[in-house]
Write a protein that binds this DNA or RNA. Structure first.
Lengths: 243, 243
DNA sequence: GAAAATAAGCTACCGCGGGTAGACAATGGC
DNA sequence: GCCATTGTCTACCCGCGGTAGCTTATTTTC
């Protein structure tokens, strides 16, 4: 029996390919080009395109895709990277025109939502629809990277304000969760073309001011308010059919 | 060669023998029983168990599972239903001891987190890891049903308070998004055994009071605070590796 | 009481997609 | 020009979701 098992080939091949790419014929199989093609294929065919189709869109075959990009996980990771860069760029652009407090938050939220909506299929691909068996892990990995700067910023700000910085981490994930879920819902119903600016304003209101009533004199009203929500929560959860 | 059965028979057949041999009645394979078994299998084998294993755990075979429960989508839907019921029950129990305003929110959040943590695998199964090609749709479907009562409650409360009820829908999804993502993060790192009560308190703080500074005299500090976050956001998004 | 009718279940199979191995072509070195 | 190296393609494997048709056990009817 073949005890000779030259494994590690994939890893080795990948490393070698990237190194020796310019040795043989540089072909159009550049990694960036493959990723471009992958995005095109995903935009065209939805987040569930097969790797074969992605490769075909790039004009190559599956093994080439594998040797240059790697696993499907690796593809998800790479596209995550690009999408995060794009989101970050959009956020930076939205904030370029000077910002303060709440307005800055709103611009950022709007920018992220717009980016998600613009790349909805890529976003879906990166967040698990393309990952198959590891969808939640993909979502979490993406969230980790998206939340990292938020966490750092919040912790820093709280430290400077003399507050306990420990909520920073859950808060960062919470904010990403808001964007994630609302984005999902927003672009889930195609007919619902809610104004992005309006949506951003609403989310900002929640994130900035919370559910609490605005003035402390309204404390009594607050109780009523939450009590209403709670009553419904504890009521029937059997909502309408989604199909 | 005679028709020898190269089997996984031993597992399936034995299980079947114990369960189905006394099927005096064909109704033995009750739907609820199959769903119970599915949950057991998921808890045992993670959210990515195959249908074959689920069926084996139930002591039946795939076609039986199909005929009684239906598609994998249908299975996800059915388990969603059960999990939502459980979450709702936990929330109700947590609120049974009288509640007001912020405290009620905190109890609810804690209850939901606890339920998610307790059924982490089932939660993951229902939220896409088990759905394969339609993971985000599963997540959205679950969120729709989880958010429905929140949305109704918030809209009602806002209407009674004379406020615009239109943010209710995005807010409901936002809250579910917070629970979803933070829950994912929380139980994603097994070693991070952050105190659930503490986590719930932190999330409640965010949801109730928002990111805004507490007193208006701190407005200047607020600017600084968000500016810090923004600076990091617009900085490098290349966080640490997740692997 | 026996045998047909019937209903449930099981084995065996299909299609499809991710991932890989080994043959094949093209390029650079000698 | 020939060989080694390297990148690429064809053909395949495997596992899983989903289904078809035979088998078996229960029920019904004379």
């Amino acid at each position: 029996m073949p005890t000779v098992k030259p494994v590690q080939r994939s890893a080795a091949a990948v490393a070698r390919a990237s190194a020796a790419r310019r040795r043989g014929r540089p072909r159009l199989a550049d990694r960036e080009r493959l990723l471009d093609a992958a995005e095109r294929a995903i935009r065209r065919g939805g987040p569930r395109v097969s790797l074969e189709r992605i490769a075909a869109t790039a004009g190559v075959t599956k093994p080439v895709l594998f040797s240059h990009v790697g696993d499907r996980r690796a593809l998800v990771h790479a596209l995550s990277d690009r999408l995060l860069t794009r989101i970050e760029r959009a956020a930076r652009a939205a904030l370029a025109s000077g910002s303060e407090g709440r307005a800055a938050l709103e611009r950022m939220v709007a920018a992220q939502l717009a980016t998600i909506a613009g790349d909805r299929h890529v976003y879906a691909f990166v967040n698990g629809a393309g990952a198959g068996d590891t969808s939640l892990e993909s979502t979490l990995a993406f969230a980790r990277r998206a939340a990292a700067p938020l966490i750092a910023g919040i912790a820093d700000a709280r430290r400077r304000a003399g507050a306990d910085p420990s909520p920073a981490e859950p808060w960062g994930f919470a904010i990403i969760g808001v964007l994630h879920m609302v984005g999902l819902w927003w672009l889930g119903d195609p007919k619902r073309e809610l104004d992005p600016a309006r949506l951003a304003a609403q989310l900002t209101e929640l994130l900035w001011s919370g559910l609490a009533p605005r003035a402390e004199s309204l404390e009594q009203r607050a109780v009523t308010r939450l009590a209403g929500g709670v009553a419904v929560v504890t009521g029937a959860s059997r909502g309408g059919e989604t199909r």
